[in-house]
């Protein structure tokens, strides 16, 4: 197996792939997420965001005072479609 250092193990994004995207001129957390797919797997960025931001700060591409993580959206935890569907049932009691 080739030697690889992963930033995001969910979507298999390595340090060298992040470097490649940076070389293409993508320096923002959101840009790098969209280009590499980092942070879009089952863990939703819980594992990779710190490693990515640390890398950007070390390279001087992000300001530690102002840098922000990518937007946190639901679901933060795994949820089944069956459970979500239960919330739509007419007898649910909350009128939704």
């Amino acid at each position: 197996m080739p030697r690889r250092s992963f930033v995001c193990r969910c979507e298999d994004v390595t340090l060298s792939e992040v470097d490649h995207a940076i070389a293409l001129g993508l320096h923002e957390v959101e840009e790098l997420k969209r280009y590499t797919g980092l942070g879009t797997g089952p863990c939703q960025g819980k594992e990779c965001i710190s490693a990515l931001v640390k890398l950007l700060i070390d390279k001087g591409l992000a300001d530690p005072e102002t840098v922000q993580p990518f937007t946190a959206r639901p679901p933060t935890e795994p949820v089944t479609l069956g459970a979500l569907a239960a919330g739509l049932a007419p007898d649910a009691g909350d009128g939704s």
């Binding site: 690889r4 863990c43 594992e47």
Partner: peptide
């Protein structure tokens, strides 16, 4: 196996965060 490179994977964080012990 991982999504892109098909590398072997196992549990990492052991506390419900990481997504590779699924």
């Amino acid at each position: 196996r991982s999504a892109k490179y098909r590398r072997p994977r196992g549990a990492y964080c052991l506390r419900g965060d990481c997504g590779t012990c699924l």
